[in-house]
């Protein structure tokens, strides 16, 4: 650690160190620490040598171009796909032993929304882990679920069948479920994809609510313009970790160029402009 800490700024390693990362294998205090992870589909590596440790109580945006392995990172961390090498620890222990500490909000398309359930049913599912095996949900479970729906602004639609909700509303149901699940760490796969403005602000409010409760949230995110606004930390990913650490240090022109390639897209320029205005603003 000491040898790399002296490096000039802009260097990837410095930033990694700023996030309080790794010289020993896994920091037991880190909510999520990934060490040396390589994931390959068939023979082609999609993620290599990923080293990353999240800091507790922060909102982390996982950002990178298409095919950079963002969703793969989450899925491999949760043992949903096999790793070619490396290890992941949740508070210092393997995921298998810490399942209950981890909440996962999958991509909306991965669910069959024709399932005969109402919004409140789906939210109640987040509480199943804390109910007894045989008994049906109790009244206070339902109330908890309704309360969570209220928090995401879905109280009126609580009893509507889920296929009759709009995409944004479905996403909010998922988030309400994450809220009641009361995990310590959340992995969210593109919660902002294809949602309306109201949902977007509801999601942001919820992320901040989770943060206020001391949760750590890792969010796969596509929209570069909002990264600065939404996330405390950012993990720039393009098959390998390009940079990670506090957004203000890491989300720089140079790092974005490293992540997205030589030709800066319009979006990155726009993100830069926003970044400047945020820095210059009040």
């Amino acid at each position: 650690m000491s040898t790399t800490g002296t490096k000039t700024s802009g260097d990837t390693n410095t930033v990694t160190d700023a996030a309080g990362s790794l010289s020993t294998h896994h920091d037991p205090r880190a909510p999520v620490s990934i060490h040396d992870m390589t994931v390959a589909y068939h023979r082609k590596p999609v993620l290599w040598d990923i080293d990353y440790a999240a800091t507790e109580g922060r909102l982390v945006g996982i950002v990178g171009p298409n095919g950079a392995g963002k969703s793969t990172l989450i899925k491999a961390s949760l043992d949903l796909i096999p790793k070619a090498s490396g290890s992941v620890r949740i508070y210092g222990k393997p995921y298998k032993k810490q399942r209950k500490l981890v909440g996962y909000v999958p991509q909306r398309e991965s669910i069959d929304w024709d399932f005969p359930a109402s919004a409140v049913d789906v939210v109640t599912m987040g509480l199943y882990g804390r109910m007894s095996w045989w008994l049906p949900p109790r009244k206070h479970h339902k109330e908890q679920a309704l309360h969570a729906l209220e928090q995401v602004g879905m109280a009126d639609l609580a009893h509507r069948q889920i296929s009759k909700l709009s995409g944004g509303q479905q996403q909010r149901v998922f988030l309400a479920r994450a809220l009641v699940q009361d995990a310590s760490i959340y992995f969210m796969d593109e919660p902002f994809a294809g949602v309306d403005a109201a949902t977007e602000s509801a999601i942001v409010a919820l992320l901040n609510e989770l943060k206020a409760r001391g949760k750590t949230v890792l969010v796969v995110h596509h929209d570069l313009q909002t990264v600065r606004e939404y996330f405390d930390d950012v993990l720039l990913l393009n098959m390998r970790v390009v940079a990670c650490g506090p957004t203000k240090d890491v989300f720089t022109h140079e790092n974005l160029q490293k992540t997205y390639g030589g030709k800066l897209t319009l979006l990155v320029e726009a993100a830069e402009a926003i970044a400047r205005s945020v820095r210059g603003g009040p």
Binding site: R99, K100, F115, M125, G129
Partner: peptide, 22 residues
């Protein structure tokens, strides 16, 4: 009847089921 919850959650979202310990 007895495994209603478990069947429901594993059918709807196996990923969630796993993370709540089912």
């Amino acid at each position: 009847m007895l495994l209603y919850k478990q069947l429901k959650i594993t059918t709807f979202d196996p990923g969630l089921a796993t993370s709540v310990g089912i």
